[in-house]
Design a protein around this nucleic acid. Structure first.
Lengths: 187, 187
DNA sequence: ATGTTTGTACAGTTTTTTCTGTATAAACTT
DNA sequence: AAGTTTATACAGAAAAAACTGTACAAACAT
């Protein structure tokens, strides 16, 4: 089973691709994306043309069902896009070439959701505690309520700040502060 | 088993605390912290004094071992601090009151790590591919290498930008752009 | 030194998540 | 309309993660 020189070169190329894909896959959980969906992303990323679910399935040696769920996760995260090609009936997917947009979108989506959920719960809790602080018969309860409210208000200030940070990305004002970089151009 | 009015008030207070704690616990995975460590955080957060592992264990009805690992995760994330009290031999933990600092620290730690890992892999891959592009005997390999390099360079620009964003937080310059908010003051 | 107390490593169990194969619905072709 | 092709819902299997109890080491007390 001797390999031709071309085959060995190709292996080396694939290995180079895999190194990057592995790194991405191992860190992508910060975006709530599973490791295997990260590998899927990598596979699409290095493909010269949009891929079908069947091709992905063959590429990664995984079931088509998994490709379907992976593609859904990546689409929701705006990391890949569905594309069409005339004459092709299957759905085709390719990575969104705008890393800034796709990754800030994810950032915004995940973080603004968690931040607003926390803030909502915080305010509801605070309101309850304020009632207790005023109305509770037990002095111990009134005292602890006051303490808790203080704690929550510290957190509240932080969450409001956080929402402004998210806004910085949502409004794209971040790009005025830290400009997009040009990719080294092909010459 | 009739409850006294004080007990009912206390229940209501605990319920208010739990609402916030649940929200935090459900979103804290974005910091790579497990849900139960998030609940642990909440327990410490609403405690009037620093807690020991045994107290936490009783509070959450979980094993001391789990408290130990939870505490480690929260400490690594700079969300809680170990404190000492004279005469007390056990380790005591309390939440770090500076939400800005503890949460930006986590943000920086997690994201700069993932970003630099990705960037490192990316550059190594790119170098390999550049060799192939120049030296490969197979034209097909040279072509694909050129294509991959282009893809990687797009990503590289993004990662470099991302590192500057992280720097914005690390240097605290973010606070010049979006100032810390004052917590509503106790009067 | 001997005996306690406290925190954590580790192996095994339980729970959760991920993955697969089958079944089916929707879209398309003839 | 009947027959394909394609994508996904769902139930069960496989894998991973979280949790616990036991064992032990380090720190302290006597």
């Amino acid at each position: 089973m001797k390999k031709t020189p071309e085959e060995r070169e190709w292996d080396r190329l694939v290995q180079a691709e895999e190194r990057f894909v592995n790194a991405v896959a191992q860190n992508i959980h910060l975006y709530d994306i599973t490791n295997s969906a990260g590998r899927l992303y990598g596979s699409i990323f290095f493909s010269e043309r949009p891929l079908t679910l069947d091709e992905m399935s063959e590429d990664l040696c995984m079931s088509k069902t998994s490709m379907s769920t992976g593609v859904r996760a990546l689409s929701e995260a705006d990391m890949i896009k569905k594309t069409w090609r005339k004459g092709v009936r299957k759905d085709l997917y390719q990575t969104d070439p705008n890393w800034y947009k796709s990754f800030t979108n994810v950032f915004i989506k995940r973080w603004s959701q968690s931040s607003s959920e926390n803030l909502k719960a915080l305010r509801a809790s605070k309101e309850d505690l304020q009632h207790l602080m005023q109305q509770a018969a037990s002095a111990r309860v009134r005292e602890k309520a006051a303490f808790d409210i203080q704690r929550l208000e510290d957190a509240e200030a932080y969450y409001e700040w956080m929402q402004e940070v998210i806004d910085l990305f949502e409004s794209e004002a971040i790009f005025d502060i830290i400009p997009r970089r040009e990719a080294p151009s092909e010459s």
